[in-house]
């Protein structure tokens, strides 16, 4: 059983998170400000994840994350009503591994928690797989071309053959932006007739399968008016 520290000055939110995560089988430790969170961390060395609000009394989330990061590599998910780009960047730059904005979708939060826990606890096993020639990966997105399987954050994802081919092509060339036409020509290996939006539909479906929040994709990014790419996370 994994221990998760939830820290928010709003007790009802902490309680709601506790209900959701308990159902998933996690053990919850509660704190209502940054100082309290640090104290609990001191007493318990067996904590696998921290969910941290930013705007808190005494010690805010950013500073708390900074202090935790000095000697611990436990994943931190920031949870905040601040939804501006620069707020997210500030959070991620100060030691957060993920950023969820309030009001959050409970399912999304659970998915992100699961993802972080999987990452944190199965980190060692991934390194081995990397050596295989038939393995393409970016961060925790792993495509095994021998078994034709796709794994995201340690969880297998089912894709159709077309979706698989598109994702494999993009992951092979991670970091490079491809237009619809280029993807078509490379995956279908025949000339595109220009009018297809079928690729866009497929991409949408892939995103829905591999991303926790398809609107804010982590792996398969859309550059509107230019093309698509798999973000290089290594």
């Amino acid at each position: 059983m994994y221990n998760i520290l939830v820290c928010d000055d709003d007790k009802e939110i902490v309680k709601a998170i506790e209900i959701y995560l308990s159902k998933e089988g996690y053990n919850i430790l509660k704190a209502y400000d940054g100082m309290e969170a640090l104290e609990i961390l001191k007493k318990n060395s067996d904590i696998q994840l921290i969910i941290l609000d930013i705007m808190m009394p005494k010690l805010d989330g950013i500073e708390t994350a900074n202090i935790i990061r000095k000697d611990k590599s436990i994943p931190i998910i920031m949870l905040s009503a601040k939804s501006e780009d620069y707020d997210k960047i500030a959070g991620l730059n100060n030691g957060a591994d993920d950023y969820v904005t309030k009001p959050f979708n409970p399912l999304e939060l659970i998915a992100r928690v699961n993802s972080q826990i999987r990452r944190y606890t199965s980190l060692g096993s991934m390194v081995k797989k990397e050596k295989d020639d038939n393995i393409y990966k970016s961060g925790d997105l792993i495509i095994n071309d021998s078994t034709k399987t796709v794994e995201v954050d340690g969880k297998e994802v089912k894709l159709t053959p077309t979706e698989y081919n598109i994702l494999k092509f993009l992951t092979k060339n991670k970091g490079v932006v491809y237009s619809i036409e280029q993807i078509y020509e490379n995956v279908w290996e025949e000339e595109s007739y220009g009018a297809e939006n079928i690729i866009a539909v497929h991409i949408r479906h892939i995103r829905e399968k591999i991303e926790i929040n398809p609107r804010e994709p982590k792996y398969l990014k859309v550059i509107w008016g230019i093309g698509y790419k798999i973000e290089n996370l290594d």
């Binding site: 939006n197 079928i198 690729i199 866009a200 991409i203 859309v222 509107w224 008016g225 230019i226 093309g227």
Partner: peptide, 14 residues
């Protein structure tokens, strides 16, 4: 590319 953009968006909403 406007063509690309429209393809992408229409794909999103299909």
């Amino acid at each position: 590319n406007v063509n690309e953009l429209i393809k992408q968006v229409s794909g999103e909403f299909e």
